[in-house]
């Protein structure tokens, strides 16, 4: 497994450095989209909105999380479709590791390789907007819970791509769904909101990070446990759905013909 991770890391790095134009385009578009969102919110709120500061910081945290989560979602959902179109999907199914382990290792490697770009995006956003965020080591494990849930959704979509072959519209739509999940302040919406926020994918981790990074709150153990359980449950569900889809295509012979 360690060897597979290193191989995926080398593969991801080779593709990353081979096309610097794509990296720059991704970086610039992520920053531009955020700035439009950020200034749009400020314009709509109008001058003198005292409480908007926290919300804007929360937006920055949510947007950064969205970028990280999208990477995980695409790492399986789009990748299954892309590999199938290229024809290499069957080769992954021929691996003794099995496709789920290969894709799981791949999204982890992609995250390591692209973390630099995502942190550059965050730095640029903070620099341009003049905002600051409270960063502590506790942020990292919470972020991991969000990433796990995002991978779970990616596997669920990957499973759907295996069965239905082409789901580009759904994959695109799901990115907006992710944005909704990580930027919605469930914690401000009373008991029902808190309950939904504990169950919805990515939501508890995102709420925790908003509190920690935007409002400087300490890491609450109970909230962290909920976020961890949420991440693991969604990852487990995604892997289960992917496994069902894999079994279906192996029985139905539906791996080719994309």
């Amino acid at each position: 497994m360690h060897g597979l991770f290193l191989a995926e890391l080398r593969r991801s790095w080779a593709l990353f450095r081979r096309y610097p134009g794509e990296v720059v385009t991704m970086l610039v578009s992520l920053v531009l989209v955020f700035l439009m969102l950020f200034w749009g919110v400020r314009y709509v709120a109008g001058p003198g909105s005292g409480a908007l500061g926290d919300r804007l910081d929360g937006l920055i945290v949510g947007y950064f999380l969205w970028s990280v989560a999208t990477l995980g979602l695409n790492g399986v959902g789009w990748a299954v479709q892309g590999e199938a179109a290229m024809g290499t999907l069957e080769q992954l199914f021929l691996s003794p590791f099995g496709p789920a382990r290969v894709f799981l290792t791949r999204v982890a490697a992609d995250l390591v390789v692209q973390l630099g770009v995502l942190l550059t995006v965050l730095g640029s956003i903070l620099l341009i907007t003049g905002r600051t965020l409270a960063l502590s080591p506790g942020v990292v494990p919470v972020m991991v819970t969000v990433v796990l849930a995002a991978w779970g959704l990616g596997f669920a979509l990957g499973g759907l791509a295996l069965r239905l072959k082409r789901i580009p519209s759904l994959l695109q739509l799901s990115q907006y769904g992710l944005l909704f999940l990580v930027t919605t302040p469930w914690e401000d919406w009373g008991d029902t909101g808190r309950w939904v926020g504990a169950v919805a994918p990515l939501a508890p981790g995102a709420a925790l990070l908003r509190g920690m990074m935007a409002r400087g709150e300490p890491l609450e153990l109970a909230d962290f446990v909920i976020a961890t359980l949420n991440g693991l449950a969604w990852l487990g569900l995604g892997l289960f759905l992917f496994h069902l889809a894999e079994r279906h295509v192996r029985r139905g012979g539906g791996l080719a013909g994309y």
């Binding site: 080779a14 290229m86 024809g87 021929l94």
Partner: peptide, 13 residues
């Protein structure tokens, strides 16, 4: 397994 056509390689590697 070498499948028909060019379905066995990553083009960009």
């Amino acid at each position: 397994v070498v499948l028909e056509g060019t379905r066995n390689l990553y083009w960009r590697l």
